[in-house]
Simulated scan of single mutants.
Amino acid sequence: MSVAEAPAAETAPPQGAVRLTVDGAVARVVFDRPHARNAMTFAMYEELAEACGRIAADRNVRVAVFRGAGGKAFVAGTDIEQFRAFASGKDGVAYEHKVDGYVGALEALPVPSIAVVEGWAVGGGMALANACDFRVASPGARFGVPIARTLGNCLSVASLRRLSDTLGPALVKRMLLLAEMPIAEDMPAGYVTVAEDVDAVVEAMTGRLVGHAPVTMRATKELLRRLSLDPKADDVDIVSEVYGSNDFREGVDAFLSKRPPQWSGS
C-alpha cells in the first residue's frame, strides 16, 4: 500500500489514510480519518512507515510536521475494532512489536519533527505525538493512555521507555494507573507549546528549523536516541561524520567571514 499524496481535503476512505506532502524543505503528514478521530488502522500505520521512509530519504527535507485531520484530534489511538481478531497473547506481542516499529520510525527521523495536537492525543496517538521532537497544542488539548479503564491491555517496554524519558515515571503512572488525561496546559514545562494560533507557532518553528544546520540536527537526534537506549552508547561514527562534513567547514568559514552560512546537509 502506498502512502497517499492527495490533499487532506479529499474525502478520507473508511479505513483512513496517511497523506504526505512536501513543500520545499517542509514535509507535512496528515492522519486523515476524522470521522473516527483519526484512530489508526493497520493500513494507516503502514502508510505512516512509508511516509517516514520517504522523508528520511529526501535530503531536501529539513523538518516534518504531523497533524490530524478535522481539527478535533491528533490521533485517538488504534482502531479498537481491529483487536476483535486477536485470538491469543501472541497476537498482542506481535501488535506491540509492530507499533514499536512504527513509532520508532517516527522517532528516528533524521529531521526535527513537530506534532500539532488539536483535541485528543490518546493511546497510540499519545505515543506518536511523544515520539516527535516538539509538540504544539491548542488550549485544552488532552494527552493520555487511559487503557486501565478502557481496553485493559498494556504497553511494551519500548513504549514505556519513550514515555518515561520525556514525561518521567510519576506522570506516566498517573496516566496509566489512574487513567488521567491532563490538558496541554497541565503538561510538564517544555513538553508542549500551547497556543491559540497553532498554525502561526508551527510556521515560526519550521522557519527557524529550516535555517539550522541539517547535519548538526541529524547528529543530535541520533545521539539522543542512542543515549536513551544505552548510557554508554558509541558516538565515534557520528562525531567523525559531523566534523568531516561540508557543513562543518562551511560553518567555520561563515563564522570567521561574518556571513550567514549556506547549509547543504552534507
Rank of each mutant, 00 (worst) to 15 (best):
V3Y: 13
A4E: 15
P7E: 10
E10G: 13
T11G: 07
A12V: 08
G16H: 01
R28A: 14
F31P: 05
P34E: 12
P34A: 13
H35C: 00
A36G: 01
A39F: 09
A39H: 06
M40T: 06
L48W: 04
A49H: 09
R54L: 14
I55M: 07
A56G: 10
N60H: 13
V61P: 02
V61W: 02
R62Q: 12
R62C: 14
F66N: 07
R67E: 15
A69G: 02
G71K: 07
G71Y: 06
A73Y: 05
F74A: 07
V75T: 06
G77N: 04
G77H: 03
D79G: 00
D79V: 01
E81Q: 13
F83R: 06
R84P: 00
R84F: 12
A85G: 00
A85H: 02
A85C: 00
A85K: 02
S88L: 00
K90Q: 10
D91M: 05
V93I: 13
K98H: 06
V99G: 01
V99T: 04
D100P: 05
G101H: 08
Y102H: 12
A105E: 15
A105M: 15
L109G: 07
S113H: 03
A121K: 02
G123H: 11
N130F: 01
D133C: 08
D133S: 10
A137M: 09
A137S: 15
S138L: 07
S138Q: 05
S138T: 15
G140M: 04
A141M: 09
R142G: 01
R142E: 09
F143I: 06
A148K: 11
T150H: 02
L151T: 14
N153F: 07
C154V: 08
L155F: 10
S156E: 02
A158M: 01
S159W: 01
R162P: 03
S164Y: 00
V172P: 01
R174V: 10
R174I: 05
M175F: 03
A179C: 03
I183P: 00
A184M: 11
A189K: 14
Y191I: 04
V194L: 03
E196W: 04
D197C: 05
V198T: 15
D199R: 15
D199T: 15
V202N: 10
A204V: 01
G207I: 10
G207K: 11
R208H: 15
H212F: 08
H212K: 14
T216M: 14
M217I: 02
M217G: 01
A219G: 12
K221T: 08
K221Q: 12
K221C: 06
L223F: 08
L224V: 14
R225T: 11
R225V: 09
R226G: 14
L229C: 11
D230K: 09
P231L: 08
V236W: 06
V239W: 04
S245Y: 11
D247Y: 05
F248W: 14
F248Y: 13
F248K: 03
G251A: 11
V252Q: 08
V252E: 06
F255S: 09
F255C: 09
L256E: 13
S257T: 13
S257D: 15
K258M: 08
R259Y: 03
P261V: 05
P261Y: 03
W263H: 05
S266N: 14
